[in-house]
Design a protein around this nucleic acid. Structure first.
Lengths: 194, 194
DNA sequence: GGCGCGGTGTGATTTTTGTCACAAATTAAT
DNA sequence: ATTAATTTGTGACAAAAATCACACCGCGCC
């Protein structure tokens, strides 16, 4: 839980008392590999802060294909946010890929936290703002880059994810087939780079 | 300016005094068709609230192709948000497509407004949150739907935009060529739908 | 320590979409 | 109103990526 405090303090300083108050809103949960945190159709009670472990959030289309919206590692937040904020049934699935420990925050808890502590409202605004700009970047990438370029960009943005996650899932994230990804070979090192 | 108040009050009620205070942070600007509000490379001083008029925000890739990130009509917010929040040079261009009147808000003004008035922090959080979920939806659409499906979805989500904006720009938004879009013909009305 | 399953690489082929070229239609500008 | 500019449609063709099929690898699990 200390890490959650550090995580919050990357955005805003927070006193011991305040943090003691904040922590009361969270509940801890252990999750094993292959376990679903959210299944399509579920009511989405919580958003999750990942203390450790790995998850993927994916959408299953009408043809049964999976499309990954997000990988989540330690220190990141995760939910089906549309379903969470609007309290509708989930369209996403969230599955554990490496044994994990997460902290759960209900919508009510989150909104009370934000309205009680201006600091926390600010914190959540900053978090969603950076998520927003990151998603804009991803949209631009999907619109303007070919599979090789997207894969290379992904590798340089998220080297830790590339190491920990099977390539087939990265293909699902990039919107290309696993075969196409498999045929992307590292660019030849040019002589001039000796 | 009355509309801005209505717009804010869709999220949170606000007193006369508060709104008087809020309005002092904005400056008004008229923009003519074809005029750039933001050009790639610029420092992005403001975000803009559109009182009336139409804009598009687009990215130009290395091959000179344009990719549209956002259309903005009346009552919406617009900027190159990455460049705005992180105060880096713009990667986007924002161009006026129909004569417009906008209200400008600098980053300093925005952050002061948010820290002075918890209400406004809440307002901005809610706005960016709904933008975030809308963008997630768009990413899923880019990953999982073919051009026809994306175009039909776009038409049902944004009928007003389809009416007001040339199709070539919609193609640039959907990530397909204008020719492909032009070859998408309305689905045949099935007999059973008489 | 063998067995099974999930993951990966690769060839052959098909499908989808982009590109190029040009004409027609629509809209804007003087 | 006429002229210019922008937008749209469509055919022929090329390019990119998906799909299908199959072999093989590697690791976890009894």
């Amino acid at each position: 839980m200390e890490n959650l405090r550090k995580h919050i303090e990357e955005i805003t300083p927070i006193s011991d008392d305040e943090f003691e108050y904040v922590r009361t809103f969270f509940t801890k949960k252990r999750v094993r590999k292959h376990q679903f945190l959210i299944q399509a159709g579920d009511r989405v009670a919580c958003e999750y802060w990942i203390a450790n472990g790995v998850f993927r959030a994916f959408y299953v289309d009408d043809g049964g294909r999976e499309h990954i919206l997000q990988f989540a590692l330690e220190n990141s937040w995760l939910s089906d946010y549309h379903a969470f904020f609007y309290q509708t049934g989930a369209n996403m699935n969230v599955v554990c890929m490496e044994e994990a420990e997460v902290f759960c925050l209900t919508l009510l808890a989150r909104e009370k936290l934000a309205s009680d502590l201006h600091k926390m409202e600010h914190f959540f605004r900053m978090k969603v703002t950076s998520g927003y700009t990151a998603q804009q970047h991803r949209i631009i990438s999907l619109l303007s880059r070919n599979p090789r370029e997207r894969y290379e960009e992904f590798g340089s943005l998220f080297p830790d994810i590339v190491k920990r996650i099977p390539k087939k899932y990265i293909a699902e994230y990039l919107g290309i087939s696993r075969e196409t990804l498999s045929r992307i070979h590292p660019a030849h090192r040019r002589r001039s780079l000796n």
